[in-house]
Write a protein that binds this DNA or RNA. Sequence first.
DNA 1: ATTTATTATTTGTCTATACAAATTAATTGA
DNA 2: TCAATTAATTTGTATAGACAAATAATAAAT
Lengths: 237, 237
Amino acid sequence: MKRKPLYQLVMNSILERIESGEWKPGTRLPTEIAFCKEFSASRMTINRALRELSSQGLIYRVQGAGTFVSNQMPQSAELLDIHNIATEIEQRGHRHTSTVHLLQEEKADNFVATSLGLEPGASVFHSVVVHREENWCIQLEDRYVNPEVGPDYLLQDFTKITPNKYLMRLGPIEQTEHIVEAMMPDERIQELLKISEKEPCLLLHRRTWTHSKVATRAWLYHPGSRYRLGTQFSAKK
Amino acid sequence: MKRKPLYQLVMNSILERIESGEWKPGTRLPTEIAFCKEFSASRMTINRALRELSSQGLIYRVQGAGTFVSNQMPQSAELLDIHNIATEIEQRGHRHTSTVHLLQEEKADNFVATSLGLEPGASVFHSVVVHREENWCIQLEDRYVNPEVGPDYLLQDFTKITPNKYLMRLGPIEQTEHIVEAMMPDERIQELLKISEKEPCLLLHRRTWTHSKVATRAWLYHPGSRYRLGTQFSAKK
DNA sequence: ATTTATTATTTGTCTATACAAATTAATTGA
DNA sequence: TCAATTAATTTGTATAGACAAATAATAAAT
């Protein structure tokens, strides 16, 4: 294991104290000089650590006044883009349940293979899971996984861990691609989501890259009447 | 006008040479030492400029090897979130046209007023514009503008400048909110977008903040069969 | 010719110091 | 008492120098 540079150690240390609640939003942090003494570091090093945390939105700095913990936890584009349906539901204070409708190894057809960056006919893992919020079907997740990235995908117990959470553990997500469209669902989707034939669906195409390979290709169907996809973005500074 | 710090001048100078095409993707940039001489700056200052450009994804750096121009232009979250329909269409090499269906001052009802942070009954500007790509209706833009932020909104010629572009000129967009949903359009929308009654729409709610106030509240309707909303995100490093 | 070892180059991090700029606190003056 | 001025504090930028770490180029050895 490579030793991390000092400014990153400082960042982590500050991060932990904010996340633990020791330093709550609005709190004024110690001055740079104080951190210098705590970490036996120069002011430039502390300054860099604080500057990078600031650019991430976790803290904000006012010249002459000090450094403060931001009110809103930063909505990193990463977390925002790869938001987890289970976490989202739980944060609303609702109960999340899911049903696995399919979980198997398949030969990839042309479309799936190319979108995963594999040869047509290669083995891929395929899962179909319905997520419910208080017994309302809220998402149909149709996912293909690259076996090179997630070799033990089929062994997971998706009643306990969501496919999303599993993917997060494979490694850092280096890139994501999202495409959103409105569409009329076919019969299969209508049945699985238990919606009428008149109801449109929000379809989110998602691809993620891990270890420089396409890790997963998912189609996420949401009932139009029950689901909205929201994002919020604050410009830096 | 305040003088910009040196590292930002260096950033801009490098940025210009990349955008002008002088330094194409893949090109190796001069070394830090070379930049030091060019700008009569210390290595730390040059390092910071390059590091920030790198964190923006415009260039990438390899220890021991050098600094290189990234292949893909960076997709800043800001530009990504506030993407301009006209620019988007033109980048596809297509012709963009638009028709203004409504442009007037109104008394805000309860809903519009609260979403703009105004008192009910306050004056607001209201515009309805249809955007077409090669004569295909691709977006119905139903927008309310806060007069405090954009007092001369009604005087604009929206056949020449899109509402979006106008808003960008009012000042930096500090925050954005997006909500996406799939819905069945009512008759008014069907007529304006010239779509059948069976076709679902992608509805994008967008609010933007400028000068700490809600500047605009827009509903953007897209025909489901003709439009997909895409985003791509690359993690830093 | 190919592999290995060495050297040079280039970026990454870190220190110590200095002054500028913005904010806050203290002091002064009327 | 209130306002204006001054001083102290804190962050922002910048410099010069140093060593570490990764890569690329060169030289040496087989």
